[in-house]
Amino acid sequence: MVFFYPKQLYGAFESESLSPLQNAAGSIPFSIHPNSLGVLSDPTIISVNRSLFGAGSLNRKFGLKSLTESLFVVGGNFQDFGVGLGVSRFGNPNYQETLVSILGTKNYKELVQLGISLNMYQLRISNYGQAWAIGSRISIRYTMGAKVETMMSYLNANRPVIGQSKEKLPQVISAGILVRPNEKITGQASLVQDTEFPISVRFGMIYKLLDQMDIAIGKIQQPNIFTTGGCINWKNFRIEFSYLFYADLGFITYQTGINYTHIP
């Protein structure tokens, strides 16, 4: 019975909207080019994904059908701004969370990418009704050099609450470093703190095995998760998959996804 597990549990909108490749590389909270689906959790990458792109993914948390999560995003570049629209759904016919995000990015001096997303949270419980709230995310990506990028993200700094009980929506601070020592390896170290939970430390690595194939591994501390997965590239398409093993629970989550990025 997952719902009575005595340690950390997910509350409303606590599920992170990450792409399979992000999850495979240690649930990195930041997007990695050209992983388009990552813009849901970190829109700064839209300024790199200048062409039209679209992506979607599906997973069942802990392998449970009742905890099905689907993500979809579409976007592109309009004049000097990156724009996008994302949707995520989580739950089942009785309990469903829907998140609609309007995404925007601005590049400054080729050094800083500032991303902002306006999030509409909708919570629906059958026979009880529904509630909604407006949240926000601010993401900043800074190019620290040829091989290092650093990212910061603030989710719901505007302190949104939802429903009659005014349940507080998650406020999350994320910070991370992305290192590319060579063309084949991308490493990440990140810290994710939901202000009501202990800090989550995450490490991961993506290795380009072939031009058409990447593999990834990662480790999350708090909760204790081992991750792996990869992606297959074919023309403008990428098929991604990830495998998350919750060591304390003994459960496994599989996630698959597909990306399309128009390459002129």
Binding site: N156, A157, K168, Q171, V172, I173, T195, E196
Partner: peptide, 10 residues
Amino acid sequence: ERDAEEINIL
């Protein structure tokens, strides 16, 4: 600033 254990990010 967000001090340790405080609920709000800012």
